[in-house]
């Protein structure tokens, strides 16, 4: 098992750069997160007003996956329930939790409260890309390629999933990063096999670039 599963694309947002399949998609050093995110959004040339309602964690997840899927249409290739998502991060929704909590001392903000769950980022991806398959949200102190690979494999081998968006994103106190990749079964491009060694390599390689 596992030989026919390949990583067909990957993206990393970190240090003012957006790397897509190991080439530079967008760069803006030393920008405030909100400016950086808005400019990536503009560079993508999309029209999705919901983006501006999202909290920062959802924004960085949304943008990363927008880049990851800019040349692929999951809607065309798969049924809604054939795509899954495995998402993990370190600080859950703490950045927004603090914002919500501060609002709650005066007047609790429902618009902030709905973003005080990390899996809402998955929900935003599902709405945007029409994904209805199995999804899950985990919290680890650091990116765990071994677990991430095992869980995606499990979904692909036993849960009727044919494509899986897998990744890691964190946003806390203005610091953020995102790393996502697409795993597909029966992909023509088997250049990057789906395993934890390759995932670790991509996660670190892109960063050093």
């Amino acid at each position: 098992m596992g030989t026919d599963k390949a990583i067909s694309g990957y993206v990393q947002i970190k240090g003012g750069r957006v790397m897509y399949n190991n080439s530079l998609f967008f760069e803006m050093p030393d920008a405030e997160p909100v400016v950086f995110f808005n400019d990536i959004y503009k560079a993508l040339n999309i029209n999705y007003p919901k983006f501006f309602k999202m909290d920062n964690l959802c924004k960085v997840v949304f943008l990363a996956v927008e880049v990851l899927l800019k040349d692929v249409s999951l809607r065309d290739k798969y049924k809604p329930e054939e795509t899954g998502i495995v998402f993990s991060n370190a600080n859950s929704s703490l950045d927004t939790d603090i914002r919500y909590f501060q609002s709650s001392l005066e007047a609790p903000s429902p618009a902030l409260f709905v973003y005080t769950l990390p899996n809402v980022a998955i929900g935003e991806l599902c709405i945007r890309h029409g994904i209805k398959g199995e999804t899950a949200c985990f919290v680890f102190d650091i990116f765990d390629a071994l677990f991430q690979a095992w869980y995606a494999d499990t979904l692909l081998e036993t849960c009727g999933i044919k494509a899986c968006i897998s990744g890691w994103a964190d946003f806390y106190d203005g610091k953020f990063e995102a790393f996502f990749y697409l795993v597909e079964t029966g992909s023509d491009n088997l250049s990057i096999k789906h395993n934890s060694e390759n995932i670790d390599k991509l996660y670190n390689q892109v960063w050093k670039n």
Partner: peptide, 30 residues
């Protein structure tokens, strides 16, 4: 406080009470 709230460290604190040897897993999916 941030570290105490981080769910992975909360899980480790609980696991350490029982001298757990494996890294705990945390699901936070509403």
């Amino acid at each position: 406080t941030r570290s105490r709230i981080a769910l992975h460290s909360t899980a480790k604190t609980v696991a350490a009470y029982f001298n757990a040897v494996n890294m705990p897993l945390v699901i936070s999916n509403a």
